[in-house]
Write a protein that binds this DNA or RNA. Structure first.
Lengths: 151, 151
DNA sequence: CTACATTATGCAAAGATTTGCAATTACAAG
DNA sequence: CTTGTAATTGCAAATCTTTGCATAATGTAG
């Protein structure tokens, strides 16, 4: 079973229908790998399925996210991005507000926090979808980045 | 010194210029209170400053966020929302993916997590801007919400 | 108060994302 | 394989958000 087929199977198990559009989008996402934008995936997938509509890509991304196959995040004010969820090594995302760099966040670190929040508020944070904004180590060290804004 | 004046002062101290637009937007935000959308604030502020442009509101919200006067978050797929930062009681936001409810997250809970992440990745999470998605206590208890999607 | 450098605004256009609706299609059941 | 229902798609239009550029305004220094 190919990678794309396995993902389609996961999707079906979540109660979603497996359509040619979704299959091709899933294959495209898996093939490209890394952090993707809607536009990127759209243009790539369109070569194999010319009639594909942008709205479908948006809706599919939403479905894939709901199904837990991909994780989404919005780096800064740029268009949304997403990545295939890594089942071997589940992790969150840390997005640097200054340089836009996206790094991985170990889920173990999240878990303790998750439980404390759950205990205090009853709120269930989604560890896997977790995306946090802030400053990466490099930019945080750079004093110029934010303070006072007085370059 | 009025509330709006104090906020304008904070803005100036961060290196931003204080313009009529910003002043009125700040007053509007402070006056309305709670969780606001760009549209809401735009329409309200426009009554006092008819020439006000929507792009200016977007840019101002961005500046206020940078200056740390407001906190932004995007509940679900709806338009962005924001709220005046509560200096007396700094907190993050918990947004329920199911019902959209926004609740407050005690910053103390975040702090320990923040430090662990900082230690592991050198990444500095912005506690004050922190907005987390997940399921609120009510929706999490509701079994129908997500699992299997086989309602 | 005046002049200056820089930042902010308005406007219009572009880009990103969502939504309503009719036609199509996947999947389950017979 | 045929039938029926509910989910999905494409399309077009509506929303939301960002951006380029010329003009106007702020805050600083003389």
């Amino acid at each position: 079973m190919s990678c794309g087929e396995r993902l389609a199977q996961q999707l079906r198990e979540k109660g979603y229908r497996v359509t040619p559009q979704r299959t091709i989008l899933l294959e495209t996402i898996a093939h490209k790998g890394g952090h993707l934008s809607v536009q990127t995936v759209y243009q790539d997938a369109r070569e194999r399925l010319p009639g594909l509509n942008l709205a479908t890509v948006y809706r599919t991304v939403d479905s894939l996210r709901d199904a837990g196959l991909i994780d989404c995040y919005a780096p800064g004010s740029e268009p949304m991005q997403f990545a295939l969820r890594d089942l071997e090594n589940p992790h969150g995302h840390l997005v640097c507000r200054s340089c836009g760099e996206v790094s991985d966040l170990d889920l173990e670190l999240v878990e303790a926090f998750r439980q404390r929040v759950s205990g205090a508020n009853g709120f269930q944070i989604e560890g896997n979808h977790l995306t946090l904004e802030g400053l990466c180590a490099v930019c945080a060290a750079d004093d110029r980045v934010k303070p006072g804004r007085g370059g």
